[in-house]
Design a protein around this nucleic acid. Structure first.
Lengths: 360, 360
DNA sequence: TTGTACGCGTTATCAT
DNA sequence: ATGATAACGCGTACAA
């Protein structure tokens, strides 16, 4: 039943509702006429219902519904001098952490009638600039952007248009930017501390690319500092940096374990996905987790708790980050003073992939 | 260094660029004045450069850049009677398949200067209605929506505004809706056929919820039909329906394998995630994959190929779906006739989780 | 409480 | 090739 069905084009000027019988979409004036009121009253019935006599208001809303009329956003934006659009720029769609953040932001903005534009930069600063420029051209009233390592002039571009913005997911007390996030360095101190307490002395690190990603650099710094406190360090061969996926986790573990002794007894991964890669590769190397090797992740993605053994990791409440970021921006939009730095505390979750260091 | 820094509010009317020295954002008139031309020429310099003398055009663009002026989208939308906004409604952000589709759509629309609005319905038809209504109120010129099982009146709502739309991810030759997708039934026929060819006789199914999801129902139908061709069927206890996550995959496999004999030797899962759940639970049940039990997934998420053993599954080119959906909508917007049904063929990928049925 | 009338910023039409 | 001007659809002082 694959008839060569062809869809008639709609044509670019064919938007809008049923109007007054003509093909033309309904306007406020049509509603006004049909309800026997002025366009001002129609507008008020929608934007300030309390200023309209109940009977009139009901009639207007009824007529509007019948005509399928909704205020045209362009006209409204022009008259109100507000677009009611905000934007968020994230590295990647389809990644749990960012998805949760975006969903929460979307919900928070929607409550105030603000539409959220989503832009993906794919970890490319130039693309982030393009996406952001497009959003500014769209008239976004506020912007959230993941991370503060952006191309030169990125924030200047936003500030030139006086658009309030907030950096999410990263947090640095001395950052010049308003931000909602957590201290990546502290978080990885906690992880490293946990492994030190378990008696580990030789560590490996598998991290996502640090270029254009301040968060990863901070994580590594956290590990290094905590090790240095005990007079330990990360050997060059025990630090791998590459794509944040399972495959790189696998190949990194293999490289380290096939390298010269001493070999790490604990692997700190910058991401759960990298850790899962290590967990998947371990059996092939004859390594039992956690008896022979401890592994940690970060993010607490859904897979982490379900894996076998379940992954020791750190959970960040990304929805909360999204809510707080949206709240911050809404406050600024409404002229309310707001703290410039908001910190979230990630929670460490000890599960099955970390244990005491093996006896040598 | 956690000074109690406070951000001064921007105020809601503080949008836009540097303007002419006052706080006011620049308008076309400012650019016109500064460049010694009329606003009409400014507009043409941006929208129809070829109609403006090169020298004038360059001067206008230069002045515009200096003033940080960009055409205000609301004004442009009003005058052009085009919002240059499209929308897509998906069940869930943060799921690879939809993320790829959305990214591809976004790219395709961006090439034509169209911004894509993204709405998440969270598998809730009522929420899909809300999201779609909001998008229509926003003046979207075109809509893509995942799946055709929507609330009553959903498509009527879209058609009432004469907005061209397309259903993605699902495909049914006799569907009343324009669609871009694949035949879920055929796909699961292929999977079932593969397992039959391996000699399996007793099958289990683990599926995501079928309510409000035509795609899942079609998948089950494909399995049932193919089994029926061989005089086989799916025992009630061997069909599980629930949340599309790893945990449900795990508990479903356990329930089936702890149930009464005969027990399935092949498990068909509606999603890779469900399959991964089954794979993770199998060892705990003393089952070796694929010697004792074959398992199949669907989607070919990144994890599938990396798992141990790698998951036999079916890959759908979601980016292609997105591209085609956007192409279809763009064509209708531009008044070009378009096929109403576009089919994608998923590809079966035999990997390590399927093998000959165990000898009884 | 309701209506009048103007302005929001841009683009399209028509004239030059 | 360029300019003047009238829409585009709505919100909001201001007047009634």
């Amino acid at each position: 039943m694959t008839a060569p069905e062809i869809i008639r084009p709609a044509g670019p000027f064919d938007l809008g509702g049923t109007g007054d019988g003509a093909g033309r979409p309904a306007r406020a004036q049509d509603v006004a006429r049909a309800a026997g009121v002025s366009t001002a009253t129609v507008s008020r019935a929608f934007n300030a219902p309390e200023k309209v006599a109940p009977a009139v208001r009901d009639r207007v809303l009824e007529v509007a519904a019948a005509l399928g009329w909704l205020p045209h956003p362009a006209g409204a934006a022009l008259a109100k001098r507000r677009t009611a659009i905000a934007g968020v720029v994230i590295p990647n769609l389809g990644q749990e952490v960012f998805a949760f953040q975006v969903e929460a932001m979307q919900a928070a903005f929607a409550e105030r009638g603000i539409t959220l534009l989503i832009g993906c930069a794919n970890y490319d600063p130039a693309e982030a600039v393009r996406q952001t420029r497009a959003m500014l051209a769209r008239g976004v009233e506020a912007l959230a952007v993941v991370g503060e390592s952006q191309a030169d002039g990125f924030f200047e571009m936003i500030e030139a248009r006086r658009v309030p913005y907030v950096v999410t997911y990263g947090y640095r007390a001395d950052s010049p930017h308003p931000s909602v996030g957590f201290d990546n360095r502290d978080a990885f101190r906690v992880i490293t501390r946990h492994l030190l307490d378990l008696g580990h002395q030789t560590f490996g690190g598998i991290l996502q690319p640090m270029g254009n990603n301040d968060r990863v650099a901070a994580r590594l710094a956290g590990v290094r500092e905590t090790l240095a406190d005990q007079g330990l360090g990360l050997r060059p061969g025990h630090l791998r940096e590459g794509r944040a996926d399972i495959a790189f986790g696998r190949e990194s573990l293999r490289a380290m374990m096939e390298g010269p002794a001493p070999r790490p007894t604990a692997i700190i991964c910058g991401t759960d996905l990298l850790a899962v890669g290590a967990l998947l590769e371990a059996p092939a190397l004859g390594l039992r987790i956690p008896q022979d090797l401890s592994v940690t992740g970060f993010d607490d993605i859904a897979l982490a708790a379900e894996f076998d053994p379940p992954l020791t990791t750190m959970r960040v409440d990304c929805a909360e980050i999204g809510r707080l970021a949206a709240g911050h921006l809404l406050a600024r939009l409404e002229g309310i003073a707001t703290p410039g730095k908001i910190a979230i505390i990630p929670s460490f979750i000890a599960r099955g992939t970390t244990a005491s260091a093996p006896r040598r």
